[in-house]
Amino acid sequence: MSGIVATIIAKYNYWIYICLMMIGLYAMITKRNLIKKIVGMNIFQTAIILFYVSIGAKRGGTIPIIEHAHGGQSHAVEAVHYINPLPHVLMLTAIVVAVATLGVALALAIRIYNRYRTLEEDEILSRIRGS
């Protein structure tokens, strides 16, 4: 038992990211309101950002900006002193993609609302069948 607890604690942020992601996925599968689904989608994408940023962490590392870079004395830069910059770069891209998707999804929701005057999936479907 203590072994399991130790594993959880050692990798707790991976557990958190999975919980977050599953919350988002659950919302997308089960909610019937289109905006709630969009919110779920955003939680889902944010969870992946947490995952990637966790990969980049390095114990004893600082932010990946080299200090006194243009100063006179040149000192050797060692990789262990700085956290991994690559996941941060990748997540900048993922954030931008998430924003773009959110914008498009909201635009679609507005179109749907203008047409059916509701965002509840059940009501929209009954209106489609009725007409």
Binding site: L25, Q45, V104, A109, R115, I124
Partner: peptide
């Protein structure tokens, strides 16, 4: 628009799963 919004939901899950898989490979 409704059909597309459903596509957006499914497509985003799909793309995110791919991204996650790449993350697992990267780690």
């Amino acid at each position: 628009p409704l059909a597309t919004l459903n596509y957006v939901y499914m497509g985003t899950i799909g793309a995110c799963f791919y991204l996650l898989g790449i993350g697992y490979l990267y780690i």
